[in-house]
């Protein structure tokens, strides 16, 4: 089955991105595919490579980049939400790209399920 994931909150402040990541990993382990994750609202803050969490903490952004590279996940950051919050192409971590809200709607149209994680 194809699952789309929508993440509406930034890393660390909320558990949303952590839960979404663990859900995505479990889905892949069960043989499902996650073709795309869409980042909206403050969720766009998951995409910046400028974050430097302490050594003993998880790196939420790096974890998404790695999962995306291993399993071909398209990490899409909403352009309007990103521009509002100062997220630009040159700040993006590997695997992330900036695009329009149409990419979110397509997930709803094309995939079997769309699961939202937020506040």
């Amino acid at each position: 089955m194809q699952f789309g994931i929508l993440i509406n909150e930034g890393p660390y402040n909320h558990q949303a991105s952590d839960t979404a990541y663990l859900f995505a990993r479990a889905a892949i382990e069960k043989g499902h595919t996650i073709p795309r994750v869409f980042f909206y609202h403050d969720g766009v803050n998951n995409s910046t490579r400028m974050g430097e969490p302490p050594q003993d903490d998880r790196n939420v952004t790096t974890r998404w980049s790695k999962l995306a590279e291993e399993h071909g996940i398209d990490l899409v950051v909403c352009v309007a939400a990103a521009l509002r919050r100062g997220i630009k192409d040159e700040l993006l971590a590997p695997g992330f790209r900036i695009s329009g809200l149409g990419q979110l709607v397509e997930m709803g149209i094309q995939y079997d399920r769309l699961v939202t994680f937020g506040d």
Binding site: Y40, H41, A80, G102
Partner: peptide
């Protein structure tokens, strides 16, 4: 921001 998604979805 939710309203923005609604408008885009209608365009599809």
């Amino acid at each position: 921001e939710g309203l923005e998604v609604v408008l885009i979805t209608a365009a599809f």
